[in-house]
Design a protein around this nucleic acid. Sequence first.
DNA 1: CTGAAAGCGCTTACAG
DNA 2: CTGAAAGCGCTTACAG
Lengths: 326, 326
Amino acid sequence: MAREAGVSRGTVSRVLNGGHYVSPAAKAAVDAAIRRTGYVVNRHARSLITGKSDSVAFLLTEPQERFFEDPNFNVLLRACTQALADRDIPLILMIAGTEDERRRNLRYIEAGHVDGVLLVSSHSGDPVVARLHEAGVPVVACGKPLGQTTRIGYVAADDRDGAREMVRHLHATGRRRIATVTGPLDTPGGVERLAGYRETLAACGLPADDALVVTGDYSRASGAEAARTLLERAPDIDAVFVASDLMAQGVLDALARAGKRVPEDIAVGGFDDSPAALSSQPPLTTIRQPWDRISAEMVRTLLARIAGEDPATVILPTELVVRESA
Amino acid sequence: MAREAGVSRGTVSRVLNGGHYVSPAAKAAVDAAIRRTGYVVNRHARSLITGKSDSVAFLLTEPQERFFEDPNFNVLLRACTQALADRDIPLILMIAGTEDERRRNLRYIEAGHVDGVLLVSSHSGDPVVARLHEAGVPVVACGKPLGQTTRIGYVAADDRDGAREMVRHLHATGRRRIATVTGPLDTPGGVERLAGYRETLAACGLPADDALVVTGDYSRASGAEAARTLLERAPDIDAVFVASDLMAQGVLDALARAGKRVPEDIAVGGFDDSPAALSSQPPLTTIRQPWDRISAEMVRTLLARIAGEDPATVILPTELVVRESA
DNA sequence: CTGAAAGCGCTTACAG
DNA sequence: CTGAAAGCGCTTACAG
C-alpha cells in the first residue's frame, strides 16, 4: 500500500487517521492508491495498538422472550442504533438471558471486541454490572442499576415523577379507589413508580391500602393476572395505575373479560407510551418515556466515558399523554 | 505471563491453544500462573495472527420492525444462539434494515470481527450477499438466496412441498375454491409456496384462477388487506392458504370483521407453525418449519464453511400441523 | 510534512 | 517437549 502510493507506511497511516501533518500531494496519492487497490485497514492490527474496536455493545440481560415481547426494547434499540449511526459506530446486539450466554458475551466484551456497553434491563445486584466494572469496560445503564456498590453511569426517565403525574391525573378526574400494578421490585421502574404512586395517594389524602398493590413482571400476562387479583380483592376499584403499557394491555384484557368498561367503570393508566399504548383497546392514557432522548444521552455519555470522562447520571422528564383509557 | 510461569511465551501459547506438545509440568505451571494473575489473551493480537475472531454474526437484512413483529425471527435467533452456545461461540446480532446500517455492518464484518455470517431474510438480488461473497466472508443463508450469480450455501425448509401438503389437506377436507396469500415474490418462501399451491390445484383438477392469488409482505397488516381483497374479488372462496402464520392472523382478523366464520365458512391454513399459530383465534392449522433443525444445520454448515469446506445446501422436510382453522 | 524504527501481544515454524 | 526468533499489519513518537 505504502509502495503503491509511493510514500511510507507512516504517511499512509496518518492519512487514514485524519490526514493531519500530511501534505495535500501525499494525501492525494494515498487516496488514489486506496481507491485503486480497494485497500482496507486491518482492524486487528489497529486495535492491537490503539486498544479500541470502534464499536459498542447493546447488552440485554433479560430473557430473549422479554426482548421480543416488550416493544420498549424495540424502540430503545432503534433509537440507540440511530444515535450511534450518527457517529458511524456499529451497534453489536447481545442478548444474555441465561448464565451461559452472560459468560460467553462477557468474554467477548472483555476481549476488547467492543469499546463500551449500553446495558439494558439489569435487575438488582446484576452480576454483569460488577463484572463489567471490574474488567474496566465503560458502561452506561438504562435505568438506575440497583444494589450496586460501584458507581456506574446511567440514563433514566424520572420514574417517580411520572408516576406522580399519572396518579394526580386519575385523582383529578374523580377516581378515589386507585390501585396499582407495579413492575418487579428489584428494578428501578418497579420501585420508583410505586413510590410515586404512594406519595401522591398520601398527598391527595387518599388512604394507603396494600390490597390495592399488586406486583407484575412487565409482561402482558402478568398484567392480566394482576387485574384478576385486584378485582377479587377490591371489586370497588375505579382506577388502576399500571407500571408499563404492556402490563396495562393485560389489565385491559382481564377487565374486558370481567365485563368492566374502561374508562367508565375503571380508568387504566399505563407507563412508557410504547407502541402497545396505541394498539390497545381503548388507546392508553400513559406516561411517555422520552426514548429518543434517553438513547441519545446513553450514547453520548457512553462515548464520553470511553473517552475517559467520569460516569454521569442523566434524569429526563416524562410527560402525561391523555388518550381514552383514563 | 511467561516469566510468571517460568516458561517461554511459546509454551504459554501452546498451553492456551490446546496443550499439545507441552509437558504436564509446564502445563500445570502455566495454568497456575493464569489462575494467579487472571491473565486473559489479547484477542486482537491473536486475531492478527490467526485471522479469526471466534464469533459469528446473525445478520438480518430486513427492517427492524419486521424483526420484532415476526415471531419466526425470535425462534430462529434463539435456536441459532443455542446451537452456537453448544460450541461456546458468541452470536453477534446485526440488524441492517437501511442502506446505512448495511454499510456500517458490512464494514464491521469485513474488518474480521466475525468469522462468518448467518444471513437471514435476504430478498432477491440482495447486494449484501454479493458484498459478503466478494469479501471472502463465509456465509450461510436461511432460505435460498434468489437472484445471486454466486453459489452460496443455504438451509431451508421444503417450502414447495409444505405448500403442497397444505393445499392437499384443504382439498381433502372438501374445499374447492382455495385462494392463497403469498409472501413477497422476491423471496424464496413467496415463490416456492405459490408454486406448490398452483401445482397442487392442478393435481387436484381445480382450475387456476389468478383472482384467487394475492401477494402480501409477511406482515399481519398485509394479511388483513389481502383477505379484504380476496373477499371482494371472490366472495365464494371456501379456503385460504396463507404463506405465513403472521399474515394468517391478519387474514383471520379481516375474516372475523367481515362476519365470516373460520373454519365453517372459510378454512385458513398458515405456514411456519410460529408462536402466532397458537395465539390466533382459532388456533391455526399450519405447516411446521423445523426451526431447531434449520438453525442447527445453519450453524453446522457455517462452521464447516469457515473451516474451508465448500458451500452446502440443506433442505429440510416440513410437517402439517392440524388445529382448528382448517 | 515525512521516513525509519520501535513496538503492540500474540502464534508458529525452526532448531534443538 | 521447549526456547529463541520471526512476523502478523498497524500506529506513533522521534528525528529530521
